[in-house]
Simulated assay, not measured.
Amino acid sequence: MPVVRYEPDAERHIAVITIDRPEARNAVNQEVAERIEEAIDDVEARDELWVTILTGTPPVFCSGADLKEVARGNVKSLWTEKGGFAGLVRRERTKPLIAAVDGPALAGGTEILLACDLVVASETATFGIPEVRRSLVAAGGGLFRLGRRIPFAIAMEWALTGDSYPATRAAELGLVNEVTAEGKALEGATALAERITVNAPVAVQLSRSVMLEGTWADESEGWARSREAGRVVSRTNDFTEGLTAFAEKRPPRWTGS
């Protein structure tokens, strides 16, 4: 049985990646890392796929690294050369990625969602980086990314205590975009993806890029990246289509070109 399910829907422009190891709390092993990387490769290569959702088979989103593999000394097998841990956390991407979190997303599970652009979580979701409780460190990006997403003092508390926190608290801190009812995270993430796919895909990708690269840069760099993004998008067919559709008072028909 596959440990990761990949379901691209070209008509809706959405792909869903599901970690499917419920018997192991969706822990990341070598096969999970490799299959996630392959799925992201396919999304990035296909012009008709505009948004990706990453989720896990309930009742857990992802419990992080498979500690049995860690105990055997196989830590490197959980990382890929291109994507890092889970084939994802160091991966360079151009298209939005939404985490749909039902149940715990702890340790590497929290680091996976920190590599995503948006997070929809059900009321059963919990978050945290408890590595210190096992004499480990959160080496998948959690120790520097968490403080970029939530207040630094709170991120430090999470890192040093190893405590876990509910979805409502994560939402208060800005880590989660939306909290849904139990079992509805994927549904909520799909609705959010559909709100994105009504927009011009190249403009979305460029906007994502400028947000990521410009938010922590100085203003001169932010202006430069914004101008370049404007130049690139103005040369696309969708730029003309957007203006034409507005003038004709009809929905635009995006091609991604």
Rank of each mutant, 00 (worst) to 15 (best):
M1W: 02
D9F: 03
H13G: 08
I14M: 04
I17E: 10
D20W: 07
R21D: 00
E23Y: 11
A27T: 11
V28S: 02
V28L: 04
E31Y: 03
E34F: 03
E34L: 13
I36T: 01
E37W: 05
A39K: 00
I40F: 14
E44L: 13
E44G: 03
E44Q: 15
A45E: 11
D47I: 14
E48Y: 01
E48M: 01
L49S: 09
W50C: 07
V51M: 05
I53H: 06
L54P: 04
G56C: 07
G56N: 09
P58A: 08
V60R: 07
V60T: 15
S63K: 09
L67G: 05
R72S: 14
N74V: 03
N74L: 12
V75D: 06
K76Y: 03
K76V: 08
S77L: 15
L78C: 11
W79M: 10
E81D: 07
A86V: 05
R90C: 09
R91W: 00
E92K: 10
E92G: 05
T94Q: 14
T94P: 04
K95A: 04
L97M: 10
A100V: 00
V101I: 09
A105I: 07
T110A: 02
T110K: 03
E111D: 06
I112R: 05
L113W: 12
V119M: 07
V119N: 06
A121Y: 03
A121V: 00
S122M: 03
S122Q: 07
T124R: 12
A125M: 08
I129V: 13
R134P: 01
S135L: 14
S135D: 13
L136N: 01
A139Y: 03
F144W: 13
L146S: 09
R148L: 15
R148G: 12
R149E: 08
A155P: 06
E157D: 13
W158H: 12
W158N: 08
D163T: 11
Y165L: 01
T168M: 13
R169M: 10
R169Q: 11
L175W: 06
V176N: 13
V176L: 08
N177F: 04
E178C: 01
V179H: 10
A185T: 04
A185K: 06
L186C: 00
L186D: 11
E187N: 01
A193V: 00
R195M: 15
I196L: 14
V198K: 01
A200H: 13
P201I: 00
V202Q: 12
L206A: 02
L206Q: 06
S207G: 04
R208I: 06
M211T: 11
M211E: 11
E213D: 12
W216D: 14
W216L: 15
D218M: 06
E219G: 05
E219D: 12
S220L: 11
G222C: 08
W223L: 13
R225K: 15
S226P: 00
E228V: 07
G230H: 09
R231Y: 12
V232K: 14
N237M: 09
N237E: 15
G242P: 04
L243D: 08
T244W: 01
A245E: 03
F246N: 04
K249I: 01
R250C: 00
P251I: 00
